[in-house]
Structures are given as C-alpha cells and as structure tokens.
Amino acid sequence: MTNIEKYNNAFVNSLEITEDRLAGLKYQDIEAWDSVGHMTLVAAIEDAFDIMLDTDDIIDFNSYEKGKEILSKEEYGVAF
C-alpha cells in the first residue's frame, strides 16, 4: 500500500467518509471530524505510519492537506 493510500484510508475509516470528499477537507467541516474524531484520526495515522505526532503538530493538523505537510516533515519522514 502506498503512503497516500494509507493516509486516505486513515481518514476514510476514522471519519467514515468517502475518498472523493478528502481534497480540501478541513477540521470541523463535517460532524465526524470534531475534537473526538480528531483523536481517532490521529491515532489511525500514527498507527498506519508507526509514528507519534508531537502535540503542536496535532494542534496544527487542521486540514487534509495540512496533515500531509506535517507528515512530510523530516522527523516523520513520510513521502507522498
């Protein structure tokens, strides 16, 4: 499975949305991506890539695109 597939799966499974809605998706755009959903999403992403996000990055993670930017940081090393 490619990294983008893993990343998308984390969103689809955690927030129960279809893949075609991911582009442009922002925190709290949908009911499922509330603060509780955010924790579930972060846990799924951490599990998928075997990483542990810093608290500041969890706070900054406010959109589908921003998440990719954060994971691309050197400390996490996820290439898309």
Binding site: V42, A43, M52
Partner: peptide, 10 residues
C-alpha cells in the same frame, strides 16, 4: 496522559 492515550484510544 497525552502520549499514553495515543495507544489507549486505539
């Protein structure tokens, strides 16, 4: 708590 719950939430 923040680090432990990353595992516990899952």
């Amino acid at each position: 708590i923040q680090f432990a719950t990353k595992i516990m939430v899952k």
